[in-house]
Design a protein around this nucleic acid. Structure first.
Lengths: 139, 139
DNA sequence: ACAAATAAGATATGTTTAGTCTTATATCAA
DNA sequence: TTGATATAAGACTAAACATATCTTATTTGT
């Protein structure tokens, strides 16, 4: 896998919305400026997050973005995989067909295990955790 | 990070050499054919592995590749990082300077931890382990 | 109706990956 | 010492992907 810029922006976007409070409606402009994300690019990313149900997008004047649910119910894994697809460390793990002998491939197993651990780890981190950690780091 | 094709080929190459026995000198042609790696591309990869001291390259007629040491002293992490550089899940973890506020960045910490775990895991797998696992899967 | 805001598709642009081509060099054997 | 075999190394190419930006349309509030 690889955390692309887009994935990083998605995390920043959700984290910023979480900081502004669960119910806050925040304009794209504000998110883009404060989280340092190119505006139009953010629009694309936000659309994916909205399709996934992580955020809600309000159109028209006074519109903007808002978290769909509480930060403690949004995990880093969810946000990242929404943007970059399922985390896969190599092709043959994600698509067994691409590795001719995946049944008898010992390497395959190692990658599968590493991938599972990584996903588990990221799935255990919510945006509420990130907010709490931020508090701790600042305070 | 991302396991590139080159990284995958490197693993296959070392694994094939390990299978043929620690002292075996194997031609590039044989490795390329048996491990299904484009010949010229394998040459590049082998050169990197040789520079790192993982394999030895014998030039000239009758030349080829050979493991420099026992399979139980070569880890997957070593082989992979020889080819793709240090495993990094995102930029700001590898280069703290690229994240403006890495000191107070909670996300940063999560990535750092995930990265450390992944590297530890891959560092714990040697090519002797892979051979043993292959035996087990075949048997 | 107008202004503010996002939606969505088309279009660059740059970087990386993956691989090939070519020329040079090294080694062995006859 | 010549020819065949084999790798070394750098230049080059093609395709894929990432990272946007541009343009036009649509939605919403006043």
């Amino acid at each position: 896998m690889r955390l692309t810029r887009a994935g990083e922006y998605a995390v920043r976007c959700v984290l910023y919305l979480a900081r502004r409070g669960p119910g806050a409606l925040v304009s794209r402009k504000e998110v883009a400026e404060e989280a340092d994300i190119p505006g139009q690019f953010l629009a694309k990313i936000a659309q994916q997050l909205a399709r996934q149900g992580i955020i809600e997008i309000m159109q028209g004047a006074g519109g903007g973005y808002r978290l769909s649910t509480d930060p403690d119910r949004i995990t880093m894994l969810e946000v990242i995989e929404t943007i970059i697809g399922e985390i896969a460390l190599n092709d043959c793990v994600l698509r067994p067909g691409s590795c001719g002998n995946s049944d008898i491939c010992a390497v395959h197993r190692v990658w599968g295990e590493a991938q599972a651990r990584l996903r588990d780890h990221l799935n255990g981190v919510t945006f509420a955790d990130l907010l709490a950690e931020e508090e701790r780091l600042r305070g």
